[in-house]
Design a protein around this nucleic acid. Structure first.
Lengths: 146, 146
DNA sequence: CTTAGTGCAAAACCTTTGCAACTCT
DNA sequence: AGAGTTGCAAAGGTTTTGCACTAAG
């Protein structure tokens, strides 16, 4: 997982400047690596340390981080983009289980799609570089309620 | 795949009214079962037959159809929801290959996730009812261009 | 006739953009 | 000093909502 020094290096390579706003936004993800934060979540977290930060800055920073593969932009169908920090260099590591009742998102570890990807690549001449898998259903707690 | 008579039955059960607008919107999907239409696409198609239909009606109808599992709401990351008609009673039939270069969406037939689903259900106590799988990469045509 | 549905316009959201002031390097 | 960055406010795009009117059952 990325740290501040990696960030400094990556930014230097691309001639981005390392502002306090950007460092604090990264920190927000490091402190919440298990969550799926949206722009507004990030804004609220970051404002506690840096009162005057603007929401536009958050959006601009999230886009840069996504381009640099520091964050992964995702959609869980709630009308806003959510981001999660890339835990490793291999993005194919976990899947999301989305509860249709309470909306919570659980993670499921393990990459069981490698073979499926090679089948698809061969059969349809499509060069796959990433995938996103979402399972919809009911989590343990919501099953108990019924 | 659904037809007008099925629609009549489903609507009757829920006390929805079968208006010409709703029939024409269903017809748009029957005529374009291979496409992934967004609300505006539907509005444009439907307006050719029913000039005065409002975009709000299209949105409201798409939501009803999704609730009734006649349509499937999807997100391909282009900032708007897209819908496709449910070809069968089993929604687990095909996956989407999204080209990162030209944006085209191809379909890949075959349900290779049944076993993965049962593994997940067992290991994480999550009752899966649906899944959505997207593969990102480069289509044949865009690979040739490089 | 009753209830649900429609079209329109306005509102609500999330996200992006223009710009003058500012700040990393 | 200079290029990139910020915050603010305004604009953009999609989707939802309020309301008077209309039409299906």
């Amino acid at each position: 997982m990325i740290n501040i020094d990696d960030l400094r290096q990556k930014f230097h390579d691309r001639q981005y400047k390392l502002t306090p706003q950007r460092q604090i936004i990264l920190q927000a993800f490091l402190d919440n690596h298990d969550k799926h934060l949206c722009a507004e979540d990030v804004h609220n977290i970051v404002r506690q340390k840096y009162t005057d930060i603007g929401l536009a800055t958050v959006y601009r920073t999230l886009e840069i981080f996504s381009d640099l593969d520091i964050l992964h932009k995702m959609d869980f169908g709630d009308g806003r983009s959510r981001y999660e920090i890339n835990e490793s260099s291999n993005p194919h590591q976990h899947h999301h289980l989305i509860c249709l009742s309470c909306g919570k998102v659980k993670e499921f570890e393990g990459d069981l799609l490698e073979t499926l990807e090679s089948v698809i690549s061969r059969k349809s001449n499509f060069k796959i570089v990433d995938h996103q898998v979402k399972f919809y259903g009911y989590c343990r707690e919501c099953q108990d309620k019924c």
